[in-house]
Simulated scan of single mutants.
Amino acid sequence: MRVLIPSPLRSYTQKEVVEATGGTLAEVLADLDRQFPGIRFRIVDEQDRMRPHIRFFVNGEQEFDLERPLQPTDALDIVQALSGG
């Protein structure tokens, strides 16, 4: 499936859009980490929870469940909020 990578994480992928496989959101993140070591830890914490500044959108709809079933034709957008002072 097509995965949109936010600009703060593109140092891992060197691309804005990559391809990944998996039957659930968690499996897609594992595939991303296989291809781009270290990226998953920037997205999901040690307790397998989405980090507070990360949002997932599957086919344009926000998703919070890492066990959500996905289809190969789905599109995943990973969005990272920026903060500063």
Rank of each mutant, 00 (worst) to 15 (best):
Q62C: 00
P37Q: 11
G23D: 14
Q62F: 00
L9I: 09
E16N: 14
F36D: 08
T13W: 06
I39C: 07
A30I: 02
Q14T: 12
D48F: 06
F64N: 15
G23A: 15
R49P: 01
P72I: 02
P37M: 08
E27Y: 08
K15F: 04
V17Q: 11
Q62L: 08
E16L: 05
I39S: 06
Q62I: 07
P8D: 03
Q62T: 10
A26G: 07
E46F: 07
T13V: 07
G23V: 00
E46R: 14
R34W: 05
V17F: 11
Y12M: 01
K15A: 11
Y12V: 00
P69Y: 04
A30Y: 03
G60S: 04
D48T: 05
F64Q: 14
A26R: 15
R10H: 05
Q47L: 02
H53Q: 11
I54E: 09
G23T: 14
T13H: 02
E19L: 13
V58P: 07
Q71D: 14
T13R: 01
E19P: 01
R10Q: 15
D31K: 09
Q35N: 08
G38L: 02
V17H: 11
F57A: 10
D65W: 04
V18F: 10
A26L: 00
Q71T: 10
F56G: 07
N59E: 10
L32R: 02
V18R: 06
V18G: 04
E63F: 04
D45Y: 06
G22S: 08
E46Y: 02
L25K: 02
G22V: 02
V44E: 12
G23W: 07
S11Y: 10
R40G: 01
V17I: 14
F57P: 01
A26F: 04
M50P: 05
Q62A: 13
N59P: 11
V17K: 12
F64G: 13
S11P: 00
S7T: 15
E16H: 13
P8Q: 01
T24V: 04
E61Q: 13
L70G: 01
